[in-house]
Amino acid sequence: MNLFDYIRPASLDEALSAWEPGAAWLGGGTNLVDLMKTGAMAPGKVIDVTRLPGLDGIESLPDGSTRIGALVRNSTLAHDPDFAADFPMVAEAILSGASGQLRNAATVGGNLVQRTRCAYFQDPWSPCNRRDPGTGCAAIGGETHNHAVIGWSDRCIATNPSDFAVPLAALDAVVEVAGPSGQREIAMAAFHHLPGDTPETETALAPGELIVAIRLPAGARAFRANSRYLKVRERTSFAFALASCAASLRIEDGTIAEARFALGAVAAKPWRVAEAEAMLTAQPPGAALFSQAAERALQDAAPSGENAWKIDLARRTATRALALAAAGTPARMPALPASTFGEPAHA
């Protein structure tokens, strides 16, 4: 780890004015400190934002939306009874990620800006356009077990590893950020960038901007009765997703009035396709319908290496997640373990 300046500002203004190129925000540290240890990140200045006041609450706003302060710890949010009741698949997604210890440390703001698990990104000795623009992509032609099958480019095939981001995308969450030029809002759909020609630009955050809150719109609560997050992984727990899906339905009189679903671990951002959701609207829930919608969501998928199987797995995962959502949010949320076990195979 390189030597760095450490500062712990006491106010948001102080934090924002402390920022300089090459600085990094430190929240829970579960991702930043890890990457500083591998050498994949080497900030000259670390700005500890964990003591900034007013960013650690979960509040209901007058317009019916729910605002989560960026410094709320992942586990605090997931175990907040009101929050978990209103947004069960968000709680389920959080609790299917990492470990109890990491969730206790990681902040929700930090979760959204966690970096990819691509081994070549994490290793500073490998070429990586995302880490060191212009050096190339060592993952292409390499070991691609964990890589993208949709939305990738010839510059980068990394995926976004966040579980949390997937239901947030499905529920049209809004990211509130503060920066040198004031506060603004970024829709989740626009928050994470696909790599294209500039994989180094991972998010819509401008230099010096800091996430201060995440907001779930009032309408997101309407899905609470039929919401699930399903994660397929290679261990029963404490593993990143091979494929995941956050699925939520609003069912009225046996008909799907509105559907939202997003796929995780298949792209550099949570993958949502409006046309696929639209196919579900005004239809009765059913396995064939779910399968068609999942197929549609992955219509543009293509292997980025020896990972064509992930397309099939993602389709199956989305199909199942929709079926689980249709079957209803379990009485006890989050269901456990958040693997496919403890769940009927034919919901």
Partner: peptide, 21 residues
């Protein structure tokens, strides 16, 4: 990695051993 001969999952996040669950 068949090109470089380097192990790409040389840590406990990538090289899986069973967890309690």
């Amino acid at each position: 990695d068949k090109r470089t001969g380097r192990i790409v999952n040389g840590d406990f996040a990538g090289y899986h051993i069973p967890v309690n669950a």
